[in-house]
Write a protein that binds this DNA or RNA. Structure first.
Length: 340
DNA sequence: GACGTGACGGTTGAA
DNA sequence: CGTTCAACCGTCACG
């Protein structure tokens, strides 16, 4: 499993609880964007949610840029460009033309469709490959060329390369590919994504998944995780960035949602909203959950009561639809969490 | 006072 | 299986 994480994150200057190195719960992120959309100033959002203004600024900026409220993919490595297939092709080229230059190989990789411009190895990479992996080409090549087609296998490479076309989230904005405009980013693989528009107005897939499906949990999560960096869907590559950010890792892992979502409660005295209660099901990340709840339900955040709200609570008219949606999520996410 | 930004200490996950 | 490395995180402080 994972190392036991700090049972109680840390407390920032505003009194908010956070876990160093980890993203804020999606609920909070969502809340930040929501409030911003409602015209609340970032500084007020910061104070209200007890999130540093730098963070608020960052999240809003990201949202404006990508249309996603989700954090970027954390960890992992860039997928290698010099995949076995690529190496194989390079070898083949070299075999066929021992005097070929690295840049020529590069061109050929591109021309032959072995690579696209985004996963095309650099000349230096090719040189390295030639040096390290195909160094003994002369001998090896003869041997291999014997059993391998003289010409580069047309397709076998495709699936593989395809997979790496836009490697991962780690390469959100490949050279030549400008960061996606927010609106575009929002309508990618997961249309609903986390756009506030969707979240506030339209029932996004997410919401549906969560609120419509009582059993929403592992299945959907898997589905989501499949979108995550780990199992990156190659097909979505061009829009990878935004999509990638849809990974729900933080939410899922932290079980933050049950607690994190709550936010709504603080703003809305919605009778329909179930009283906030700490999840009884403990996930591996319970620690964080707890903190999150503290975080969210901090002193001025008394969701359950619905009355002891932050000063702004009454000023904000959160759409009812959203309220209920959130309430639903609130109720359901513990399951999600436990499923993990 | 509001806000953008970079340093910092931290986590994560593929290699 | 532990380490490395490069990505990301949020906070904080500065301007």
């Amino acid at each position: 499993m994972r190392p036991i994480r700090p049972a109680f994150g840390e407390v920032n200057q505003l009194g908010g609880v956070f876990v160093n190195g980890r993203p804020l719960p999606n609920a909070i992120r969502l809340r930040i964007v929501e409030l911003a959309q409602l015209g609340i100033r970032p500084c007020d959002i910061s104070r209200q949610l007890r999130v540093s203004h730098g963070c608020v600024s960052k999240i809003l900026a990201r949202y404006n840029e990508t249309g996603s409220i989700l954090p970027g993919a954390i960890g992992g490595s860039k997928p290698r460009v010099t995949t076995p297939t690529v190496v194989k092709h390079i070898r083949t080229y070299k075999q066929r033309d021992p005097g070929i230059f690295a840049w020529e190989i590069r061109d050929r990789l591109l021309a032959d469709g072995v690579c696209d411009k985004f996963n095309l190895p650099s000349v230096s990479s090719i040189s390295r490959i030639l040096r390290n992996k195909i160094g003994n080409l002369s001998q090896q090549s003869q041997y291999e060329s014997g059993k391998q087609a003289p010409h580069p296998p047309p397709q076998p490479s495709l699936p593989y390369n395809h997979l790496y076309s836009y490697p991962t989230s780690k390469v959100p904005t490949p050279p030549g590919m400008p960061t996606l405009p927010g609106h575009m980013a929002m309508h990618r693989i997961w249309p609903s994504s986390h756009s506030v528009t969707d979240i506030l107005g339209i029932r996004s897939i997410t919401e549906q998944q969560i609120s419509d499906s009582p059993s929403f949990s592992s299945a959907k999560l898997e589905e989501w995780s499949a979108i995550n960096r780990t199992n990156f869907p190659p097909a979505s590559s061009p829009l990878v960035n935004g999509m990638d950010k849809l990974h729900l890792e933080p939410e899922a892992k932290y079980t933050q949602t049950p607690n994190g979502l709550p936010t709504v409660n603080s703003y809305v005295t919605a009778p329909s909203i179930p009283p906030y209660h700490p999840p009884t099901q403990v996930s591996p990340y319970m620690g964080y959950s707890a903190t999150t709840s503290a975080y969210v339900t901090g002193p001025t955040w008394q969701p359950a009561s619905g009355s002891a709200l932050s000063p702004h609570s009454c000023d904000i008219a959160t759409p009812l639809a959203f309220k209920s949606m959130t309430a639903n999520r609130d109720a359901i996410h513990p399951v999600t969490a436990s499923a993990l």
